[in-house]
Design a binder for these strands. Structure first.
Length: 277
DNA sequence: CTCAGTGTTCAGTG
DNA sequence: TCACTGAACACTGA
């Protein structure tokens, strides 16, 4: 579930549950991989009794700023999410939520707040991480991230200059977290489709106009995805997103353009040769 | 049973 | 050293 918009949804959920609350109780799953060597005891000591002063995000990284360090830093990997118990407001809808299990399957950490609220991070495929950092912004992995397209997008000229210094295919550059933090596979493909750029183009061969077009499409797509709270069904119908999955040769866009799938920078890349140059 | 997969890291290559 | 590629990681679901 995790590119920038989904992580931002997680951030907002965590904020709504935990901001200005004290963490009363912590339960960690036994998982040496996700906790990367941080023992349940150390994690509990770091969080218990602390107040959550802020919930921050940069790219796909998410962390709590507590009343004292160390601070927990979350990365969702390919399958992570924050989950909170269903609220009254949600159950106003007549549709009964099918997944009532609490805590949900694949819960890695479970937090209880001092107002009775609860928050869980799940991670089925264990590529996510829960770490502790004294100064998250100054330390890895945050330190080496590039700009966040929502919080620190460079201006058009600056963006074009940065991209123009790189010789890698533009798709690979967009996926590089040291360039644009938070852009993942589907966003990169969506940006290049809407900007009408062939994903194989070397970044340093783009014209200034093309680079600026990539920047503005990135901004528009991410802002829209965040505005609809990363709910895929609410993404605009014309987006490649809805049609890119499955790697089948029949695939076409909403306008009937033929979609092709290739491997680029080690990832499945969906693009439209008739549109992208 | 096989394989793709919304991500990151690291060894290997040029 | 830099920049980049591809395999590995772990595991579910189609």
């Amino acid at each position: 579930m995790p590119e920038l918009p989904e992580v931002e949804r997680g951030r907002r959920l965590a904020e709504s549950v935990a901001l200005s609350r004290r963490i009363e109780r912590v339960r960690c799953a036994r998982d040496e991989i996700v906790f990367a060597g941080v023992s349940p005891v150390r994690m509990g000591r770091a969080l218990k009794g602390k107040e959550v002063r802020a919930v921050r995000r940069w790219g796909k990284q998410l962390w709590f700023e507590l009343s004292s360090p160390p601070h927990p830093l979350f990365h969702f990997g390919m399958t992570g999410a924050f989950v909170a118990p269903a609220t009254e407001a949600l159950s106003l809808q007549s549709a009964p939520p099918p997944d009532t299990a609490w805590p949900p399957r694949f819960t890695k950490i479970h937090l209880w707040l001092d107002d009775g609220g609860e928050l869980v991070m799940t991670n089925a495929r264990r590529l996510g991480r829960i770490l502790l950092r004294d100064d998250p912004f100054a330390e890895e992995p945050l330190r080496s991230l590039g700009f966040d397209p929502l919080l620190g997008l460079p201006g058009p000229a600056d963006f074009a200059r940065r991209a123009g210094r790189r010789r890698t295919p533009i798709k690979a550059l967009l996926l590089d977290q040291g360039f644009a933090a938070g852009v993942g596979n589907w966003i990169a493909d969506e940006v290049l489709y809407q900007a009408k750029i062939d994903p194989r183009r070397r970044a340093d061969t783009l014209s200034e106009v093309e680079a600026k077009r990539i920047r503005s499409c990135m901004k528009r797509i991410i802002e829209k995805a965040v505005a609809v709270d990363a709910e895929k069904k609410r993404f605009p119908r014309a987006w490649l997103f809805h049609r890119r999955w499955g790697r089948n040769s029949e695939a076409v866009t909403a306008r009937g353009e033929k979609i092709r799938h290739i491997t680029l920078a080690g990832r499945t890349t969906a693009w439209v040769p008739g549109v992208q140059r």
